[in-house]
Design a protein around this nucleic acid. Structure first.
Length: 489
RNA sequence: GGUCCCGUCGUCUAACGGUUAGGACACCAGGUUUUCAUCCUGGCAACAGGGGUUCGAUUCCCCUCGGGAUCACCA
């Protein structure tokens, strides 16, 4: 538990969509802020104009909102430390850069990019790590803004504590003169995030492990800037399902919004993402949002990466769906964002269900609730409730119980079933009773008789319990479909 | 190659020196009047390897092996 009010931030660069791995640090940060009663801040790190993807800022914000990771301060809603877009904070970085220059801790990089690349390749040839400071110029020119501005580092060993990774340490050999401000006038991440986190009074930096190797450099810069470093927590990567590499867009990691569009519930996505590397020490697997906020703790986060298993996500979503009561499920929308107001069970019904009354669809939903893993499965599970599917002879020929009988035998059995059902009032109970009587009268096994009726009335490879299905279909439709099957023998 | 981190069933994980190494997903088998699913029962399945420390190591230390991250005018 975090005692004091934490200010955490999610600081993505607007270069595309958010996938399960990418959003994990956002979930952690949000949880820590909520748990402590502090604030969760969204800051867009748009300092690389070449990589920026048009519209991805909106997409990012939409993703957070849909998942229910509401931020208290951000580019679109403002806040006490606005602006929350780094491209609008250039003056701040310049001011801090000037302090460093005045203190003799930053200098203009005299080399061209090609020259630096030459140093780098030379180091690689010698199987040495590349250190710019080995080439640090003796006499520096004043910085005119057209050259990169570099940090004049003070190499030394560091020991520090990471809430997730524990005690970490490195030697002076990892400290280097990194670039603070690029020749295009934009600051690097390495510089900007430190300034912003300080100015925005961020207490906890939660980020992915790709940054851990840079932390000693940050520590060195914090010292030069005379800023106390925030608490740091480094989360391991989420790995792809099979590979050992981190989940990435390149390898087909899906946009989290795609899961929402397929009918995965946002609270499940959050639950699942958190469970990748965290548990509360008990055997509980499924947590509500409130439980997560209450129980989550960074120091119980696993140090090693976790594979993203979509099957487990599907199970978890199905389990949540089954816990929902029918009315909630029926009306359910899946997100809290602007567009997602429109996304709910009602968007997933098959086309043919459009004109059907709510009451009918709700009854159908009740039957499929226990087999629904995500809403996009609704059409294939329910289509036969809304439309006569074409006769599929292979359902009978492929059925081990039925394919032993001849066509005329089957027709005769179905004929008897038809008579029995014609007299039924078509309540579930009455259908059950009459079918049971029929079973006794014919001496036939349920596996035969029920399969036959089920196939005749649904033409689907799978369907819910027979009596319930028939009752919802209604007498007229059921008998009509039986007649149709009869003519096919 | 340097530096740092990690290593329990196929997967997500529990264990904070003493357990028949537990749970969940997936898979397999059986049951719930047909199918699919749910639910129930059962099953398969792991401490990377080797040295120490200890009365006793999955747990602590060292080495090896394996994996990952990083060494950008990207974040």
């Amino acid at each position: 538990m975090i005692d004091e009010k934490a200010r955490t931030r999610f600081a993505p660069s607007p270069t595309g969509y958010l996938h399960v791995g990418g959003i994990r640090t956002a979930v952690f940060a949000w949880l820590v802020a909520r748990q402590s009663g502090g604030q969760f801040v969204l800051r867009l790190e748009d300092t690389d104009k070449k990589r920026e993807v048009e519209g991805s800022d909106k997409h990012l914000m939409e993703s957070l909102r849909v998942l229910g990771l509401k931020y208290d301060e951000g580019p679109d809603i403002g806040g006490p430390f606005a602006p929350y877009r780094q491209s609008e904070r250039l003056d701040n970085y310049k001011a801090w850069a000037q302090k460093l220059i005045d203190a003799g801790r930053a200098y203009a990089d005299p080399y061209t990019a090609e020259e630096v690349q030459g140093f780098r390749e030379e180091a690689q040839r010698n199987k040495q790590p590349f250190l710019y400071r080995n080439h640090r110029p003796e006499n520096t020119q004043p910085w005119d803004g057209a050259k990169p501005l570099r940090f004049k580092s003070d190499p030394k060993p560091y020991k520090w504590h990471d809430t997730i990774m524990g005690d970490l340490s490195t030697g002076p050999e990892v400290i280097d003169d990194f670039i603070l401000v690029k020749s295009d006038g934009y600051p690097t991440y390495n510089f900007a995030h430190i300034i912003d986190d300080a100015e925005m009074q961020i207490t906890h930096i939660i980020r992915g492990q790709e940054f851990i190797a840079s932390v000693p450099n940050y520590l060195n810069l914090y010292e030069a800037l005379n800023i106390a470093p925030p608490i740091m927590a480094t989360a391991p990567h989420v790995l792809g399902p099979d590979g050992k590499k981190k989940l990435s867009k390149r390898d087909g990691a899906k946009d989290v919004l795609d899961y929402v569009r397929d009918g995965f519930l946002p609270e499940v996505l959050v639950n699942f993402i958190v469970s990748l590397g965290w548990n509360d020490g008990t055997e509980q697997e499924i947590f509500t949002r409130e439980e997560l906020i209450q129980k989550f703790s960074l120091d119980r986060v696993q140090k090693s990466g976790a594979h993203f298993d979509e099957r487990r996500l599907a199970w978890m979503n199905g389990a949540h769906i089954r816990q929902l009561n029918l009315d909630d499920l029926y009306k359910r929308t899946v997100g809290e964002g602007d567009k997602s107001q429109e996304i709910g069970v009602r968007n997933f019904w098959p086309e043919e269900a459009r004109k059907q009354p709510d009451e009918y669809k709700k009854q159908v939903l009740a039957l499929v609730q226990e087999r629904l893993k995500y809403f996009a499965e609704l059409p294939e599970l329910t289509r036969f409730f809304f439309i006569d599917l074409p006769i599929s002879p292979e359902l009978i020929s492929g059925n081990k119980q039925l394919n032993k009988f001849s066509g005329s035998e089957l027709a005769s059995m179905l004929e008897q079933a038809k008579h029995a059902l014609e007299q039924s009032s078509f309540t579930v109970q009455d259908i059950t009773d009459r079918l049971n009587q029929l079973l006794e009268r014919t001496g036939q096994k349920p596996g035969v008789l029920f399969s036959l009726i089920r196939i005749a009335t649904t033409q689907a490879p799978a369907s819910p319990a027979l009596a319930e299905t028939l009752a919802i279909l209604g007498k007229e439709t059921a008998l009509q479909r039986i007649n149709r099957q009869l003519t096919a023998f």
